[in-house]
């Protein structure tokens, strides 16, 4: 399973803090986004936004990042610390 974490505005929109998704083997970030959009239609429009970043195991993901069983993925809306 892949643990998915939601923060701030996306946590409200998704209606939860965490979810566990089954990922078949090792899949690309783009494919994983498709699974997320299907499972969480309420936040589908945010997932493709450039301003929403995705981290995998607490590092920023790039389009080349692969996601596998046991990973922790987080959806990060625009930061506003400081």
């Amino acid at each position: 399973m892949v643990k998915v974490k939601f923060f701030a505005m996306l946590k409200i929109k998704a209606g939860r803090e965490e979810a566990n998704l089954a990922a078949p083997g090792s899949i690309s970030l783009e494919k994983f986004k498709d699974i997320l959009k299907k499972d969480f239609p309420g936040i589908a429009e945010f997932i493709d936004r450039k301003s929403v970043m995705i981290s995998v195991n607490q590092e920023f993901a790039t389009k080349d990042t692969m996601i596998k069983d046991g990973d922790e993925v987080a959806l990060l809306p625009p930061f506003s610390g400081g």
Binding site: F7, M9, S51, P77, F79, S80, G81
Partner: peptide, 27 residues
């Protein structure tokens, strides 16, 4: 450092005004 913190640190601010709550999205 403060500019970089605002850019890369996963920290979010929610403002509550008399109109309600909003997660701030700008820098």
């Amino acid at each position: 450092a403060i500019a970089e913190l605002k850019r890369i640190a996963p920290i979010w601010k929610k403002e509550t005004t008399r109109k309600g709550e909003v997660w701030v999205e700008e820098h």
